[in-house]
């Protein structure tokens, strides 16, 4: 299983308006960045050279991991997608 191909096997109805908004400036100061390894969908990537956190909500499985592991309260918004949007499980 290649996590980069998540859209090949899990269905999403992507909302253009993100349900999670990250203040990535806060992540620069974070000494753990546990979101980058803990997120099961690899929505968070840290670029050490540019010292920059990137968050993409498209493949979010709405599991809640980042909400719990973030120790810096870096979210300016953390809610579930609007009704009808987001991940759509078929047979899990």
């Amino acid at each position: 299983m290649n996590i980069d191909e998540i859209f090949d096997f899990t269905s999403f109805n992507i909302d253009r308006e993100p349900h999670i908004v990250l203040d990535a400036g806060v992540c620069v100061e974070c000494d753990s960045r546990g979101c980058t390894n803990s997120c099961p969908a690899r929505c968070y990537t840290w670029n050490e050279e540019e010292r920059k956190m990137t968050f993409v909500h498209d493949g979010c499985l709405e599991c809640g991991t980042c909400y719990v592991v973030c120790q810096r309260k870096a979210f300016t918004r953390w809610r579930y997608p609007r009704g009808g949007f987001g991940v759509a499980y078929r047979m899990t």
Binding site: I3, F9, T10, L61, C63, V68, M91
Partner: peptide
């Protein structure tokens, strides 16, 4: 064959 990948707390 992989059909679906999912995650939850």
């Amino acid at each position: 064959r992989l059909q679906e990948y999912s995650a939850h707390l």
